[in-house]
């Protein structure tokens, strides 16, 4: 609507004043973000300052309690345990999936055409599998009664009795982590591979003529060109892995024990399990705060880039 009036009002030559163009261009996206996320984010803030439980749901109104939810959360030793666990999990997940994805992408450059083609197809299939289904298959692989992995080990001739893989949290988190990394690999590998194919051949040839070894070529030509891609992939991985929820939820059949709580599960459990919605909101906000601090460098870089 605004656009139409501007078109009519201004002189013909410069129908839309130069200064207004960028605002017109970002308007639709701002509108969409503000409409869909504006209120929920605002409500998340207000909810975090309220006592909001079952009684308040029925009354339809929370009681303002100031920062009580935050101070209670920060004084809860369980919170710090969960935070530590989540940070370790995130760090492990990001390192494993980025290193494996980058490694695979570099290998793809040197693979036989057919093998690369099949691998590419597999990666797309993994990506295309609905998450709900892929996690269920992973759960089946390591289930108690009908574990495919247990059966495979037995079929090789090793006697391996029925085994609950999730009694030991380390083994449980390794399996969960495996499925998370497995699901993240296609996106990472395909992105790095696409970036690798964009490295101009003449640059590499020039380096070769100058006598560069393949390691030097990687360090001085390929790596600097790929750096921006890595920064984005690492930051997105941090954001996604920090918020892992569905994997843990589905693997542990909708009732993970406290030893499997990560931040997202913890916040969800507080809200929906214990009906302490105000507390859940406070935990979610702390989560966002931690994420911002962890990715601070990336945010600064991006904002500088965006400002150019």
């Amino acid at each position: 609507m605004g656009r139409v009036t501007i078109l009519k009002g201004a002189p013909k030559k410069d129908r839309v004043p130069k200064k207004i163009w960028p605002y017109l261009l970002i308007a639709p996206s701002l509108f969409c973000l503000a409409l869909i996320l504006g209120f929920p984010v605002y409500r998340l803030f207000t909810l975090s300052l309220e006592q909001y439980g079952l009684r308040e749901i029925i009354a339809g109104k929370g009681t303002f309690v100031g920062l009580a939810n935050f101070s209670e959360t920060l004084q809860d030793p369980e919170f710090w345990q969960v935070l530590r666990r989540t940070l370790i999990f995130t760090f492990a997940m990001v390192s494993v999936s980025i290193v494996a994805g980058a490694f695979l992408a570099h290998l793809m450059m040197k693979m036989h055409k057919r093998i690369r083609w099949v691998l590419n197809g597999v990666l797309i299939l993994v990506w295309a599998m609905p998450q709900l289904v892929s996690i269920s298959v992973w759960r089946w692989l390591f289930s108690f009664d009908f574990s495919i992995v247990t059966a495979l080990i037995n079929s090789v001739g090793i006697d391996f009795p029925k085994h609950n893989y999730f009694v030991n949290t380390l083994s449980g988190f390794t399996i969960i982590g495996g499925s998370v990394a497995w699901g993240a690999l296609p996106f990472i590998t395909i992105s790095v591979y696409a970036a690798l194919t964009q490295v101009p051949k003449d640059l590499l040839e020039a380096a070769e003529i100058d006598g560069a070894t393949s390691r030097q070529k990687f360090r001085h030509v390929i790596f600097p060109m790929l750096l921006p891609v890595y920064v984005i992939l690492i930051s997105l991985s941090v954001i996604w892995d920090f918020q892992v929820f569905s994997h843990i939820w589905i693997f542990l059949e909708n009732r993970p024990g406290p030893e499997y709580f990560t931040m997202a599960v913890y916040a969800f459990q507080k809200s929906f399990g214990m009906s302490e919605y105000g507390m859940g909101a406070a935990i979610s906000l702390i989560m966002i705060f931690v994420l911002i601090s962890v990715t601070w460098y990336y945010l600064r870089q991006m904002m500088k880039m965006g400002d150019e």
Partner: peptide
Amino acid sequence: KQIYVASILLVQMLPLTALLIP
């Protein structure tokens, strides 16, 4: 522009599970 870029980046950090109810 900086504010716009910042808000675009921050949106990616919102935990979906926390926004479900609102």
